[in-house]
């Protein structure tokens, strides 16, 4: 049994090793991009059932952004929506035999958390300027500046650890059970792992929205929703 903590290098491109999670990510990207182009080419004012399904996804993401960030979803839709769909498909990619979810590896989760960290800075600076973004660290008072600064790092780290821990542990448990009990025993755990994967994708996207909204909260008229709870 392979350790989920280790990266398997499939091949090298020059000095750069290409791990299995990167290849899986490329496959997922290929599927998503091909599907998006197919949807894009068949967009119609009178929608088909497929188009209705994808429009439902877009409207759901928009609704979540409006409810969570209290902002118009246009600038944030692509980032939040892509994060959710990518993590969701990555988590569910374990359904494909011999495929390990990229999110079960620390590098992918770290990359996602790092992108959220950058997005918080990017959207915060774009909304209120560099000064406006920095002033958010002095909220509610300047004494909180060190704590807020540390929080901006720790919450990114918490994103990374939460997603990695949940997905990796699911894969790890399934691998252990599979090696011990046989073929059919891990199925309930796999179903639970799918549920956990969907929930974690949602939580990651919601937390990204909350962090971004927190960085631009003082520069927009409507406050960030009060439910800034961080589910474990």
């Amino acid at each position: 049994m392979k350790s989920p903590l280790s990266s398997i290098i499939v091949f090298h491109v020059g000095p750069a090793p290409i791990s299995e999670s990167v290849v899986t990510t490329w496959a997922i990207m290929l599927v998503l991009v091909i599907g998006s182009v197919a949807v894009f080419r068949h967009l119609s004012l009178v929608p088909s059932r497929t188009q209705v399904f994808f429009e439902l996804i877009v409207e759901t993401v928009d609704s979540q952004i409006r409810d969570t960030m209290r902002l118009e979803p246009g600038p944030y839709r692509a980032f939040i929506g892509t994060l959710f769909i990518f993590i969701f498909i990555c988590n569910w990619s374990s359904l494909v035999p011999s495929v390990e979810p990229p999110t079960a590896h620390l590098e992918t989760d770290a990359a996602l958390a790092f992108l959220v960290f950058l997005a918080v800075i990017w959207f915060g600076v774009r909304a209120g300027g560099l000064g406006g973004y920095l002033r958010t660290f002095a909220s509610p008072n300047p004494i909180m500046i060190p704590l807020n600064f540390v929080e901006s790092l720790t919450r990114t780290f918490s994103l990374l650890v939460r997603l990695f821990g949940n997905v990796m542990s699911g894969v790890f448990v399934i691998g252990i059970v599979l090696s011990l009990a046989g073929l059919l025993v891990p199925i309930p755990l796999m179903a639970l792992d799918l549920l956990t994967g969907a929930v974690q994708a949602y939580i990651f996207a919601v937390l990204a929205m909350v962090f971004i909204a927190g960085s631009i909260g003082e520069t927009v008229p409507t406050p960030v929703p009060s439910s800034e709870r961080t589910p474990s």
């Binding site: 990207m29 998503l32 991009v33 599907g35 998006s36 994808f54 692509a78 980032f79 892509t82």
Partner: peptide
Amino acid sequence: NVLILIWLLGRFFWRPVAAM
């Protein structure tokens, strides 16, 4: 990869569908 995916999906999925 994720940055590229965000750009591609934004280009071919999120914006067109939302515009539609």
